[in-house]
Design a protein around this nucleic acid. Sequence first.
DNA 1: TAGTTTAGTTAACTTTGTTAAGTATTATGG
DNA 2: CCATAATACTTAACAAAGTTAACTAAACTA
Lengths: 140, 140
Amino acid sequence: MNKSETDFYQVFTDLQCFILANMNRGNIHGVTATHYNIMEYIYRGHQVTGKQIAEAFQISQAAISKQLKFLTENRLIKQQQSTRDRRFFDLSLTDEGRYIIDNSENFRESIAKKASRSLTKDELKTLTVLLHKLMQQVKD
Amino acid sequence: MNKSETDFYQVFTDLQCFILANMNRGNIHGVTATHYNIMEYIYRGHQVTGKQIAEAFQISQAAISKQLKFLTENRLIKQQQSTRDRRFFDLSLTDEGRYIIDNSENFRESIAKKASRSLTKDELKTLTVLLHKLMQQVKD
DNA sequence: TAGTTTAGTTAACTTTGTTAAGTATTATGG
DNA sequence: CCATAATACTTAACAAAGTTAACTAAACTA
């Protein structure tokens, strides 16, 4: 790695430590970060299924199945067998689930706010564009 | 959140998903990402102790103690009771441990390389500076 | 329509974290 | 100077969240 790469590597290491340390820390409304992320994904999506979530988060369907079971038992989401194809279950939030997503600030949100406080508007835009560009490359 | 914050939030969500998906995936030389990170920390540091690692990664000393036990049993690190203060154990890598760190490309390194391929030199520098600025703010 | 594919579930297990209680060592205040 | 507190670390019991493999049920297909 050359100098620029090493510099980036170092700040990215910090970032990774930070993200790992802040995931699954402290429950908001009795919901872990994992639950929160799944619920948010369902909330933002349209006719979301378990398969999709598994792919989005790159974890096994079995793992998602367990989480969805928990969320359903705790009345945070609803699973309804799809009429189009009864192998699928369309997922949606209950009122309580929606309330939690609407009313709790997750750690990414707090970072976004800190970002807009510590950077100028232009800097924030630039950071977003560059990160986006990086993520596009990285996904391949 | 305003528009810029929301845009940032979205790309940061992608980034988080990516980091989580790529942590603890696939062992390099039979060493998980967790082991690798601890070994790298010991390698880069000077008279590193368990306490320090626990603080750096923001996990409990008990968790670190277990990992260090594993690494010692597998002859990847050495623990030597400090002569200054016998409560401490100075940690260092064995030849094999050093070999692994020197010869395996971790996932952050591959990202750093992709970053330098997908961005211009100036863009990479800017990204590094902005991320660094953000991390400084975020740590408080 | 029989065989294959797909979505999801369940069971047994692994990894990696937690808290609480313990040991050994060092620091400190009366 | 020594009893007590603090510190670094370990161990045990447990929890969360992932894995693979084997299963059910539904839909596709040749």
